[in-house]
């Protein structure tokens, strides 16, 4: 049965691209490394052979222009996916993403939508240091006019990529190289994971842990350890970080009364701060303890492995935070 077919996270993205390009001739893929067997993992495999150089476009190192071109093509009726093999390279593309794409619909009185997917890959660790390690989802999430999705599982990676491509407005799709090898059953057929919908991936009663992307996997690990000690955490996978699935988060906190927010981004003005503010505003009465945020410190990514180990979050940090609330 198709639902038992397993696929890795990266190949789930690959399948979404194959199916969307097959279904809709206005979909095309542009960005650095799409013809390379290694640059974007195996996410682009087979696309060039199948759809040709008109629709699978490897590019010079020109993020600003290539991203702007994707936006322009979207305004002209296409459905581009522009890939950045590292989110760090997207800073050059902030202008077309933020000034142009995010604003176009509003500032032109709803005349024209930009159905473009800005796909950025988080690629960190391995002593790559400050410019090759960043996670910028909170910056994108702050911008009105951008939807931001961050799948944590192969199933969601495929479903969110399909939803992002079909969405009439700009979507920032952020995936993570640390998830690429993760496998699970992924349906072969085309399906969407609705943008704006989170998911309770572990039900629990004691503490709500809200996470996204790779941190969901670490939270699940933490839940498995904690359950042995009789602590049942509820893990909420945001899946979409803009717009937040407020009801899902609030319902969970109403149930547990305690909240740990985990985010692989920086602390100040970050995603964890946003979730925490939301709960303080709308579920204050349910809280039995202050919200705990665990995030990267406000510190650039270091090179040395000893510092990386101290810098990045793992399930151990989540376990510690949870226990601090018990």
């Amino acid at each position: 049965m198709s639902s038992h077919r397993k696929l890795s996270y990266s190949l789930a993205i690959n399948e979404a691209l194959h199916q969307m390009m097959d279904e809709d001739p206005s979909v095309f893929l542009i960005g650095q490394g799409v013809k390379s067997p290694w640059y974007v993992g195996d996410t682009a495999q087979g696309l060039l052979e199948r759809f040709g150089t008109d629709r699978v476009i490897d590019t010079p190192v020109s993020e600003n222009a290539m991203t702007g071109a994707a936006v322009g093509a979207a305004l002209a009726g296409m459905r581009p996916v522009v890939v950045h093999p590292r989110v760090d390279f997207m800073f050059y593309a902030f202008d077309p993403i933020i000034n142009e794409a995010a604003n176009w619909y509003y500032m032109n009185g709803g005349k024209l939508q930009a159905p473009v997917v800005f796909w950025g890959i988080i690629n960190r660790g391995g002593e790559q240091a400050a410019q090759h390690s960043q996670s910028l989802h909170a910056m994108f999430a702050q911008v009105p006019g951008l939807k931001v999705v961050m799948p944590a599982t192969p199933y969601d990676a495929k479903g969110l990529m399909i939803a992002a491509i079909r969405e009439p407005n700009p979507v920032v799709f952020i995936d993570d190289r640390w998830l690429y090898k993760l496998e699970e059953p992924v349906p072969e057929e085309i399906y969407e994971v609705e943008i704006g919908r989170g998911n309770v991936v572990r039900a629990g009663t004691d503490i709500t842990v809200v996470a996204s992307s790779f941190m969901v996997q670490e939270s699940i690990k933490a839940s498995e350890m904690l359950v042995k000690e009789g602590i049942n955490i509820e893990v909420v996978d945001l899946r979409t970080v803009k717009p937040l699935d407020e009801n899902l988060i609030l319902a969970s906190v109403q149930k547990t009364g305690r909240l740990v927010v985990v985010d692989g981004g920086w602390r100040t003005c970050g995603l964890a701060a946003e979730v925490s503010a939301l709960v303080s505003e709308k579920a204050f009465g349910a809280l039995k303890a202050p919200v705990v945020r665990i995030t990267l410190p406000d510190c650039p990514a270091p090179a040395s492995a000893t510092l990386e180990k101290a810098y990045y979050l793992t399930s151990a940090d989540i376990i510690r935070a949870v226990k601090s609330l018990i």
Partner: peptide
Amino acid sequence: GRGGSMHLIAPEVGMLGAAPIVAG
């Protein structure tokens, strides 16, 4: 040890730094 191979600097001899963002 904060930068690694892609962040080499020696201001005392005028090497003000190196960084891997292309053209950065």
